[in-house]
Structures are given as C-alpha cells and as structure tokens.
Design a protein around this nucleic acid. Sequence first.
DNA 1: ATATGAGCGACTGTCGACAATCGGCCGTCG
DNA 2: CGACGGCCGATTGTCGACAGTCGCTCATAT
Lengths: 227, 227
Amino acid sequence: MSGLGLRRVPSLSRREHVAEILREAITSGRLKPGDRLVELDLAAELGTSRAPIREALRQLEQEGLIASYPYRGSEVLGVSQDEVEQVLVPIRITLERFAFGKALGKLTDDDLDALQRLVDDMLVAAADGEAERLADLDIRFHELVITRSEQRHCLQMWKTIQPRVRAYFRRDAPAHADPGDVARQHQELLDVLRAGDRETVLDAVEQHIHIHLAPDGPDGPGGHDVG
Amino acid sequence: MSGLGLRRVPSLSRREHVAEILREAITSGRLKPGDRLVELDLAAELGTSRAPIREALRQLEQEGLIASYPYRGSEVLGVSQDEVEQVLVPIRITLERFAFGKALGKLTDDDLDALQRLVDDMLVAAADGEAERLADLDIRFHELVITRSEQRHCLQMWKTIQPRVRAYFRRDAPAHADPGDVARQHQELLDVLRAGDRETVLDAVEQHIHIHLAPDGPDGPGGHDVG
DNA sequence: ATATGAGCGACTGTCGACAATCGGCCGTCG
DNA sequence: CGACGGCCGATTGTCGACAGTCGCTCATAT
C-alpha cells in the first residue's frame, strides 16, 4: 500500500560516490592488493577536493578493503581464503539468519514478486554467461531481504563484510559454482521464504550461504562444523 | 564545559582522539540514545576543526554507535537485547575462535605472563568492586590475544563490534555476572591457552564468551528478563 | 666504502570559509 | 479556518590553503 512508487533520488553525496567507485575498482580487481591510493591523485581524477576522498577512504578502511598508515598513505589489501571461510562466511550466516528471521513477517507480496524477478533475471544471466550480472543479482536478492528486516545495524554490518567476500571471489577464487545452480538455489530459498516456516527458513539460509560460498567446507580434514 | 575534555597526546591523530572520547562518552552512558551530535559544537568543545570530528563520526557510525542523516546531523543509537544476543555475541565467538586459533602458536612466554597479570588484576578489581576496571581488563585480555593472532581484519572487526557490546552491558543490562566469576573464567581460559590443545582452546573460547555475555542462552524458553 | 644527519619531495593532517540543504515559521490566499 | 509557498536559521557537505610528518637522497666525515 501507500504504493506511490516514489523512489528516493538522493543524489549521492560525493563521499558515497567516491566510496562506490573505489569499492567497485577494488572488488573488480582493477585496483590490486598492494596498489597505493594517493588522496590528491584520486581527488584530481574524480574531480573533487580531498575531504570526500578522505572520508571515503576511512570507510573502505573499515570495510577492510584498504589499510591506511599515518602520513604514509593507503594501500589496497588482499583477502585470504582462511579469512573468507572461517570468518566472513560464518559472520554472513549469523547476520542473515537473524535478518531473514526478522524479515519473515514483514515481506509483502510485492517484495516476494521483486525477489522472484531477481531470480528470473539470474536464470537469464546464468544462461548468457554474465557472471558479473549474476553476482549483482545475488547481492541484491540478499540485500533486499535484509533491508526488509529493518535491522539497520545488521544491514550495515552486512554491507561492511560483503565487499571483501565479493573481492575474494572476483579476484582470487576461480569460478567455483555453476551459474545455473546459483539461480536454482535462490529459487529454493525464495520458495522456503514464501512457505514461511521459521525454522525451515533459518536452516535454508545457513545451507544456502554455506554451500554457495564454501562448498568444500573449512580447511583440510576434520572440517569443523559451524554452529 | 562538561566532561568532554581533549587531552594532549600528540602521538595519536586528533581524529582518533575524538573517536575515543566520543566512544567512551557513549558506551559509558554519558551520551544517551537519542542525544544529538552537532559537529560545530563538538569541534568547539574539543578544540579542533570539523574535519577530524567528521571523520570520527563516520567511524562511530560504522561501529553502529551513532546514525547520521544527510544535512540533519547525527544521534546516538541504542542497542537491543536481540541484537546483542543473536548477532554481536555470535560474531564475537566467530572472530575469537578464529583469532585464538591463529594466536595459539604465536603466544610467547612474555605474552602469557602479561595475560596472567591481567587476570591477577581482575581478581583485585573484582575484590574491590571496581566494575569499570574489571571490564577494561577483560577487554584488554581478549584484545591482546587477538592482536597476537596477527589477523588485522579480525582485530578490526572485533574493535568494531566490541563497543556496542560494552555499551549494552554498561547502559542497559543490569550487573549480571559475579565479578569473581569473570576473573576465574579468564584464569581457566588462560590455563587452557597455556596447555595449547587446539580443539580444547576453541571450545573454551566459545564457552567463555557465551557464558560471560549470554548466560541465559540466546533463544531460551523464558529469557526476557529486561523490561 | 660505510655511517651519519641535514635537506628535500611527496604526502597526509588540519583548518577556516563558503555553498547547499533541511525543517520550521509565518504571511498569504482560498 | 486550513492549505500553500516562500523566507530563515541551523547544520552539514565541500573546497582550497597551510602545516606537519615521513622516507629518501646526498654531501660529509671516518
């Protein structure tokens, strides 16, 4: 209801714009681990002053994409497999279990339709071999549900860890999942959401993230189960 | 001139100072949820320009202690019980399991001695009823081990979620743990660390955090005791 | 040749000023 | 009397300039 369909056109602040551009440059691999970031150069390149650049760099630092050293500039950081599998993925599971649970009673029919459209688009992207687009749709699917959970801290933490996961799989990990599977797994998750049984949803979320992001389990023999 | 004075320690940037002072003011409860933060006022009170203030506010925003609205300022946020028990504590467990595991082979005898001194001080603080000091020592114990793990991302994420946990227990939750128990539990954890058996350490870390921060269990039967 | 330390670039850290935006106030008009 | 719309104060967003710090270079001494 109240479906005025009015989308905010917030005309992002320069700071957010800069952060987005740099985040994309880093997660795409155009800026590689070890590359140096010089505020004045970035300011010139992006046509702003240093103030928004600095604030964007601080944010990327909080997201773990770069490191800054006083008076000596910033550099792009890498992401290790250990960190992704033992830290970032388990944290994502924690966050999404919580968020999906909170979102359960709040998802409207419109929301479910939007999610269905995302899944449909995933199938197309998978068929066309558009890995980038598939990953984007994947992110938007999860972000939509988390947004609907109305847990702002949760959404913020998710946005904080997500770029590193993305950077890892985009830069370092070989294509590891069948694109068709990604789409199908989201369809299953969506079906479970529609059904609406809480425990089933939470377990499905956990399985979904785990299979999707760490199909081989944690390192080595005697893999440890994340509870 | 309320208590927000800026002390001179030239080794830290003003931005870090401001962040530290505000973080302390918020977690201590001197600044309460809903309180407004005005950049110019803070700048005047702390004797700096707005630039460091702004960067500090961005950091506190990332830490979830405040929220900022474009052109309309910032306000202090509260922390819900759900969030602490279902999100922050599980994330802390994930982070510390990882960090303690990585630190296992790296802790020197000096480190273990330092940890023992912290535990000894905890006993004194507990006996004297100095809850603040006890909490400080608690934090320093965990932070030392995480630092030794040499997992910078991990330490950074820990520092990001820790203030909210602290704020919650300092502001909203009643004293729930026997101070003597806190000290004793750290002694046990340290003993396990000294022994050095990996699986035992990881389980002990999980138990330690869980018991210490969510003794009633996350989704227990009748767990709602706080109004 | 090696050690030392002053000087030099290249940056970041900080500052004060200006521009843009938001929400409320108030007069005007229906 | 209530809706509308333009001012106004408060506050943030952005900018350009200056000061401080670090690592490196290079002359100098041993």
